[in-house]
């Protein structure tokens, strides 16, 4: 897990558990800004099958806060991932 700052104009995406196994990576950088609602589409394009196998059961955090990926009542979700953000794909947890 790389916590180092991404290059200018990018954000860091962290993968855990099943998301890490699927991508064979623990982190990756992507171009910012990116509307949060487009994140899974970007990932699906890069990793075909990712949505069905993994992402559909995952949550997402931005700078350690869970975000809502669904559209709101107006069919919009205005949250934008910004340069320097730390974003993470959070699969269902299994501590204990």
């Amino acid at each position: 897990m790389a916590s180092s700052k991404p290059p200018q104009g990018h954000f860091t995406l962290l993968y855990f558990a099943a998301a890490s196994s699927f991508t064979k990576k623990s982190s990756e950088i992507f171009r910012a800004p990116l509307p949060a609602r487009d994140l899974f589409q970007v990932l699906e394009k890069r990793y075909p099958g990712f949505t069905e196998k993994v992402l559909s059961s995952c949550a997402v955090t931005v700078n350690l806060e869970y975000i809502d990926l669904d559209e709101d009542q107006d069919g919009e979700n205005s949250l934008v991932i910004k340069e320097g953000d730390e974003v993470a794909v959070i699969p269902p947890v299994s501590s204990g």
Binding site: A18, E52, K53, V54, S56, S57, P91, P92, V93, S94, S95, G96
Partner: peptide, 8 residues
Amino acid sequence: ANRDGVMG
């Protein structure tokens, strides 16, 4: 997955 985290 501790909960009902079956993929899909």
